[in-house]
C-alpha cells in the first residue's frame, strides 16, 4: 500500500479536480479539508473522490435507465472524449438535458471498444509422417492415377 503521505494531498486533489474540470478554488479547498479528516490512504483517496463525484453527479442524472456506475462511466468516457467532441465537457453534463445525455450515450458507444464475441480457434492437428511412408503413399497414388480404374 502506498501511503498518502508520499504525495502532496493538495497537489493530488488539485490535479484530480482539474482533471474533472472542477477548478473552483472553493471546491478544492473544501475537498482538501474533507480529505484530510476522512482519508487515510491513497486507495481510499481515490475511492473517496469517485464516491464524491458520484454523489455530485447523481443530482444531475436525468436518464433514470442508467445505473450510477454506468453514469459515472459515461462521464469518464465523456471526459476522455472531450478532445474528440469539443462541445461536451463536464460542465455540459451539469446542465445536461435528456437530449444531451442521449448524445453523450451515443458518443460513448462510438468510443467504446467493439464488444467481444468470444470464439475458440480449434488447434489443428499436424501429424508428422515418416518421409519414407509419405513417399510410398505418393508412389501408390501415382500408380493408381496412372494405371488404376477411371
Amino acid at each position: 500500500m502506498v501511503a498518502i503521505k508520499l504525495y502532496q494531498p493538495e497537489d493530488l486533489i488539485k490535479s484530480y479536480a482539474l482533471s474533472w474540470h472542477i477548478d473552483s478554488a472553493a471546491t478544492v479547498s473544501a475537498l482538501s479539508e474533507k480529505i484530510s479528516k476522512e482519508v487515510k490512504s491513497f486507495d481510499e483517496l481515490l475511492n473517496w473522490l469517485d464516491n464524491y463525484l458520484l454523489s455530485q453527479l447523481k443530482s444531475i442524472k436525468k436518464d433514470k435507465s442508467l445505473s450510477d456506475e454506468q453514469f459515472l462511466a459515461l462521464v469518464k468516457v465523456v471526459y476522455l472524449q472531450h478532445e474528440l467532441y469539443q462541445d461536451f465537457s463536464i460542465f455540459d453534463i451539469a446542465s445536461a438535458t435528456e437530449d444531451k445525455l442521449i448524445k453523450l450515450q451515443e458518443a460513448m458507444s462510438e468510443y467504446k471498444f467493439l464488444p467481444e464475441k468470444k470464439v475458440v480457434m480449434p488447434e489443428q492437428k499436424i501429424k508428422v509422417y515418416n518421409p519414407f511412408s509419405l513417399f510410398l503413399q505418393y508412389l501408390k497414388k501415382g500408380f493408381h492415377h496412372a494405371f488404376g480404374r477411371k
Partner: peptide, 29 residues
C-alpha cells in the same frame, strides 16, 4: 470508419498469436 487499439500483455506465439487473439475476441464481428 473505426480505429481500435489493443495492446497484448503477453505476446504468445508472436504475430500468429496476435492475429489469433483478434480472431477469438472480435473476429466474429
Amino acid at each position: 470508419i473505426n480505429l481500435y487499439y489493443r495492446h497484448r500483455p503477453r505476446n504468445t506465439a508472436r504475430k500468429s498469436g496476435n492475429i489469433e487473439d483478434f480472431c477469438t475476441r472480435w473476429g466474429s464481428n
